[in-house]
Write a protein that binds this DNA or RNA. Sequence first.
DNA 1: ACTCCCGGGACTGCCCGTTCAT
DNA 2: ATGAACGGGCAGTCCCGGGAGT
Lengths: 212, 212, 212, 212
Amino acid sequence: MARQERAELTRVAIIRAAAEAFDRFGYAGTSLSDITASAGVTKGALYFHFGSKEDLARGVIEEQHARAMALVDRLVKQGVSGLEAVIKLSYEFAEQLVADSIVRAGIRLTLEYGTFENPIIDPYRSWIQATEDFLSKAIEENDVRPTVMPDRVAQFIVSAFTGVQLVSQVLSGRRDLQQRVDEMWELVLPSLVVTRKIPHFRSVAAHAMAAR
Amino acid sequence: MARQERAELTRVAIIRAAAEAFDRFGYAGTSLSDITASAGVTKGALYFHFGSKEDLARGVIEEQHARAMALVDRLVKQGVSGLEAVIKLSYEFAEQLVADSIVRAGIRLTLEYGTFENPIIDPYRSWIQATEDFLSKAIEENDVRPTVMPDRVAQFIVSAFTGVQLVSQVLSGRRDLQQRVDEMWELVLPSLVVTRKIPHFRSVAAHAMAAR
Amino acid sequence: MARQERAELTRVAIIRAAAEAFDRFGYAGTSLSDITASAGVTKGALYFHFGSKEDLARGVIEEQHARAMALVDRLVKQGVSGLEAVIKLSYEFAEQLVADSIVRAGIRLTLEYGTFENPIIDPYRSWIQATEDFLSKAIEENDVRPTVMPDRVAQFIVSAFTGVQLVSQVLSGRRDLQQRVDEMWELVLPSLVVTRKIPHFRSVAAHAMAAR
Amino acid sequence: MARQERAELTRVAIIRAAAEAFDRFGYAGTSLSDITASAGVTKGALYFHFGSKEDLARGVIEEQHARAMALVDRLVKQGVSGLEAVIKLSYEFAEQLVADSIVRAGIRLTLEYGTFENPIIDPYRSWIQATEDFLSKAIEENDVRPTVMPDRVAQFIVSAFTGVQLVSQVLSGRRDLQQRVDEMWELVLPSLVVTRKIPHFRSVAAHAMAAR
DNA sequence: ACTCCCGGGACTGCCCGTTCAT
DNA sequence: ATGAACGGGCAGTCCCGGGAGT
């Protein structure tokens, strides 16, 4: 098993180095030499684990996808209410984005690939789907107005978050990301939540980070 | 003068071809050969007009910036109310995005450059600034609640639009962009507008495109 | 005629800038852009005066040749003795080399062209020829031993000077060139001069520079 | 080990082809395509062995340096007298120059690099140093006059040889190089050697080549 | 007569993503 | 998993013309 352990270690090192580079320079702007150099690995090793550059990018995206889904699963397990889950998901995702270059690389690659052929929309679709499910649950729980259409709103929330995160990155290197997410909920909550519960969920948003 | 005319023609052809390529493949994913080939121009011509690839990208961004600012100026000249201007700006910008590859390329490049050194945030800043100014005017005009902070909200609107546009591109090739912008205003207007005017501005949004 | 004056000025500026660049970077290492930039001239102007890069190099060489021949002519006119002329020629040439980039460029180009096809050996041949003539005169004047063969020795003196100048350039940036020429004559004079006159010509060499 | 053998073969082929080109066209005048084409090697192979054109030039210079030092070492081991070593070194070096393009390229590059930044004077310094050491030994052996200053004279001998070789190349394609070295010693020996031994060392010079 | 604008392409050094024998 | 090589493509820049302008 020592063999496999070492192989796994190498694989992880490559993914990590690749993510760092993809995050910084994008797919086309990253060279495999950059990656092998900073991972301390030879080209041969890289090509043993990944058949091509695209394959490697796909590996990074999958890893990011797994991490995002882990957030969702945890929220489901914690049994929090639907709307609370939507809100917390956004903050926790933001936190991943700041802390984890694999997550950053994953979303950057997903966005870039949108321009290519055979788009890799799975990660996005899953994220939107999870948000939609949480929203549906929130309607059942009488937290969100019944007139809200969960699919449309889920798409908007994910979109808005994506934009917020991008602009935060461009303008402040993501240093003010959390505050911008606060801003987002401030503006969006009133359209979703039944009036008397707005204050409650405002504080959920406000404390989402503090609690962590 | 025939000389200068031809030069200008060449320059425009290069910018156009460059924009098309940058929009599709991003900065790093585009080669100058792609550009010269599809512009029907030689390297010598390109090199005469633009000192480097980066220079060319900057040219595209500037051109896009000019077009966006033209929208703003027109709205100012038309003397529409502040909030109407904000709303219309988003629809008209969306329209540019769908119709004009120079605009698409400009915003893609601006986003990508955020990851690089010496970021080119001017186009974004201008856009945010214009939105902020329109919002301030809207407050004076008693369309927008006085508690709204124009700078923060302007940043969010621009961010949300950016995300909406990106996700629309990834998921539908921007075919449903207008509808997604509808969605955005549907959710955001209630937090901005004084209650009794919501229906009015809803219809402004709804007719913004139809009117064009 | 104002026209021609300006043309001549341009021509000279080009030659000077070209010489500076050729001296520093060699023929192949110099680009015409380097030259036009530092001469403050456009490509068009350069191509009006010189049909090609090689033509320009030839122009520099000719100019250098003229300057070297001017030294020879002056020595002839001054009516100094043959051997004194040989010695002084070396010092004066060394001085040109230090002070005048056209001269430096000329000899560098001549040496480099030796490797090319259609070699431009005229400048070298003239220099050698002049030295040979002075040596023959020196024999007639009983300063140089009759056993000396003027052609062979002339070739050696020119060769040795060339080497001395090159090594001085490589090792000290030509700062110690004069001293190295002293060294050269110190070692060569005894083989040329009739014994009793050695001290005299030693002092000629020693004072050759001081006198200037 | 077969792997490394093949690599070494490739490396040598590249160096050889590079030397041939550098010798003929100089550093700037040589293109890597010239080299790969005549070495029968791809760009990739060249890039694997040498990180840049300059690196390759450095490789050629080092190889030439090694060959020159081999001459010196052999003379030391043979235990010939100091002055004989100086003389033979010049003839053997001349022979290398005629026969071996790596040696020719090495000295051409060294001379050209003198004009550049970070000059590579080591090969020259080593050669001068070796000559100086032999001269010092020759003084101890009472072959060379004690008034001779070994360092100065060593520099001149190397310079003169350099010039002789260059002029021979320009004027005759180095066909008369040996004869020109004869000439050099004919003129220089009298200033170095104690009078009664001049005939002896004249014949050393005369037979230096014949003996090989 | 002299100078410049604008461009033509070939080519440069470099480096890329990939393969294959070991 | 490595070392060695492949071959095409990259951005940049070269030397050089033609036609307009002065």
